[in-house]
C-alpha cells in the first residue's frame, strides 16, 4: 500500500518501511541495541531525503528508548540524578547538533557528512565487535570481565571542578563529565538520528566509572530526552519530522522487537554478535561503495527552502 508522507512530500510503500523497521526492531530485540544507526541509512537507501530520515528517526528513538527505559526504571536500575545531569548536556548538544546540521545542509554537504559519519561509526563498531568476538573466543570472555572490574577512573577526570554527589551510583565526580557525555549524545542525536548508546554506554563505564548495572537504564533514560530535544529542534528549525513515517517506524520497531526478544533465546551470544557485526559492516560497505563509486549523474538538484 502506497502511503503519502506529508512532510517528505513523497509516496512510499508502507509495507516496505514497516518491514524495514520491523527488521531493525528484530535486531534490537535480539541483540539489545538501539538500532537507530541502521534505520537511518536504510531510509536513505529507500530514497527518503537524509534530512527527513534523521529527524524522523529521532522521534522513533523517543518511543523505543521510552519502552526500554521503563523496564529498567521498574527494576530500579536508573540513576535519575545522573541521567538529568547528562540531559542538561544533551539538550545543549542537540541544539548545537541542529546548527551543525543546518550549516551542512546550507553548504550542500549534509548527505556527504551523514554518509561519512555513518561509515566511520558503522565501520568502527563492526570491526570492534568482530575483534571482540575473536578475543573473547580466545580468552573466553575473561578480558571483558576484567576490564569491568579493573576500570579505574583516570585522575584527570577526578581533577575536574563542579563536583557532585551521585548517591545511586555511589560516585563523587565533576558534573562536567556526565554533562559532557550527554552533550556528545545530543549532537549525535541531532546530526545522525541515533541515540548514541554504543558510545555513551562505554563512556559511562570507563570514563565516569558508573556501576554497569545502572548504565543501560540511565543511558536509555537520558536518550529519551536528547532524542526528544532533537525531534523538537528538527521540527522547529528544519520542518523535517514526518509523523506518518515516524508512526510506521515506531509500529514496525515495536512488533519487530517482540519477535526479536523471542528469537534471542535461539541465538547464542557469539553467533549473535558476529551476525550483527556482519549486518553492520554490510551497511557500512554499501555506504562506502555509494560514496566512492562514480555516480551515474554527477549533478543533483534541490529546492531552496
Amino acid at each position: 500500500m502506497q502511503i503519502y508522507l506529508p512532510i517528505a512530500e513523497m509516496a512510499v510503500s508502507a509495507e516496505t518501511v514497516f518491514m524495514l523497521s520491523a527488521f531493525v526492531g528484530l535486531l534490537s530485540g535480539i541483540f539489545g541495541v538501539g538500532g537507530g544507526f541502521l534505520t537511518t541509512p536504510f531510509l536513505i537507501f529507500f530514497g527518503i531525503p537524509p534530512a527527513v530520515s534523521v529527524a524522523t528517526q529521532a522521534s522513533q528513538l523517543v518511543a523505543s528508548s521510552m519502552a526500554g527505559a521503563m523496564g529498567h526504571f521498574r527494576r530500579g536500575n536508573v540513576d535519575i540524578k545522573m541521567g538529568l545531569v547528562m540531559v542538561s548536556g544533551g539538550a545543549v548538544g542537540s541544539v548545537v547538533g541542529i546548527f551543525i546540521f543546518k550549516l551542512l545542509r546550507y553548504l550542500g554537504q549534509i548527505d556527504f557528512a551523514i554518509s561519512f559519519l555513518y561509515i566511520i561509526l558503522l565501520g568502527g563498531i563492526g570491526i570492534l565487535m568482530i575483534m571482540e568476538s575473536f578475543v573473547s573466543v580466545l580468552k573466553k570472555k575473561e578480558g571483558v570481565r576484567k576490564a569491568f572490574n579493573d576500570s579505574k577512573v583516570s585522575p584527570w577526570v577526578l581533577s575536574l571542578p563542579y563536583k557532585m554527589r551521585f548517591p545511586r551510583s555511589k560516585l563523587f565526580v565533576s558534573a562536567l563529565v556526565p554533562a559532557g557525555i550527554g552533550f556528545v549524545g545530543g549532537v549525535l542525536a541531532s546530526v545522525l538520528g541515533i541515540g548514541g548508546g554504543f558510545l555513551i554506554v562505554p563512556a559511562m563505564i570507563y570514563i565516569l566509572g558508573m556501576p554497569p548495572l545502572l548504565v543501560a537504564g540511565t543511558s536509555l533514560f537520558q536518550v529519551i530526552f536528547t532524542t526528544a530535544a532533537a525531534t523538537i529542534m528538527h521540527a522547529l528549525m528544519n520542518h523535517t519530522v514526518d509523523i506518518v513515517l515516524g508512526l510506521i517506524l515506531i509500529l514496525g520497531g515495536v512488533v519487530g522487537a517482540q519477535f526479536g526478544v523471542v528469537l534471542a533465546r535461539f541465538f547464542k551470544g557469539q553467533t549473535a554478535r558476529v551476525t550483527l557485526a556482519i549486518i553492520i559492516l554490510s551497511v557500512c560497505l554499501k555506504l562506502v561503495v555509494d560514496l566512492f563509486v562514480m555516480p551515474v549523474d554527477l549533478f543533483s538538484a534541490e529546492y531552496v527552502r
Binding site: 523517543v62 519502552a67 521503563m70 525531534t231
Partner: peptide, 17 residues
Amino acid sequence: YGALCVLIACFAGWLSN
C-alpha cells in the same frame, strides 16, 4: 508539532511496554 510528535512517541513507547 514537534512537541506533539514527542508526546505521541512517548505514548507509543509506554503502550508497547
